[in-house]
Amino acid sequence: MLAHLASPRTGGLLALAAVIALLPLVLRNSYFYDVAVLVGLNAIVCIGLNLLIGYAGQISLGHAGFFGLGAYGSAILASRYGWPPLAALLATTFAVALLAFIVGRPILRLRGHYLAMATLGLGVIIFMVISTEDKFTGGPDGISVVPFRIGGFVLQGERIWYWVVGALLLVAVWLALNLIESPTGRALRALHSSEVGAEVVGINAAEHKLMVFVISAVFASVAGSLGAHYSGFVTPAKVAFLHSIELVTMVVFGGLASTFGAVVGAAVLTTLPQLLATFEDYEMMVFGAVMIGTMIFLPRGVVPSLARLFRSHRSADADNKANKA
């Protein structure tokens, strides 16, 4: 039992739950809560994206497209057509999953940079449609979104959203960790190291890749839907190529193939612009320098690199003790 608790999986999940529970002690006002909610939503997208990039080894430079489809699907169905937000969210999620399933098959046949281009192209096409079809989407000016409500209960205010997003984040982490430990997860890792090799031992690469692609699209779409209701407003900036890049950066910054890394990456890169806000002329430069520096000095990303450092220290300690004994 204790051993189970101490496993990185359960231990990490508990630690994350503790952070979420204790964080409000330092969140001084609703502005801090707001940033925390944005971190949570980005983290959910990044966890899904990390399954795709980190575990399945398939890059996507178009994930803002799925995020945006989720946001706009909810916005249009709930605000324009008066659907109950929950129904709008579910219908949108289903539609995005279906889209990912349909386009995933041909796209995932591509490798490396060609895959990057294809996903980028997909994202650009989604962006174009959303910013052009202003009758439905409000065009580049964006669209207002009604608050999220279930029955008579209205989800409004940063504090309520904080707990909702916090809970969903835990669910997302738990789902991701389980997926990684499942036979699918093992197959994925095999895929990552060598696709041909994996196929030789009987792993159906295409099916597994497609499944992870759909899952990551669903994570992004759900976060997009919720984000739209939370902000009460959505513009095509959330669908743009730059947002896709931001998401990939968060994943890589935090650490590929590390679910907690995705959370850390989202947290750091969502808060950093807030810290740099007073230096607006330098913001872009500093942001770029931080990205370069982290990748050079911690090429595996923050969490895995630090974990490795920590482990090597510990094993060195253990060695010392053993020697003394």
């Binding site: 890059i59 490396g112 940079h113 590929l256 872009m284 500093v286 320098a289 370069i292 990748m295 090429p299």
Partner: peptide, 26 residues
């Protein structure tokens, strides 16, 4: 970072492009 993975190198060059753009602005 020449031994880093492809994705890491992509992030580095994206970071470099932001850095250069920010620098040009100044």
């Amino acid at each position: 970072a020449r031994d880093a993975s492809v994705v890491t190198l992509i992030i580095i060059t994206i970071g470099a492009s932001m850095f250069l753009r920010g620098l040009a602005m100044l």
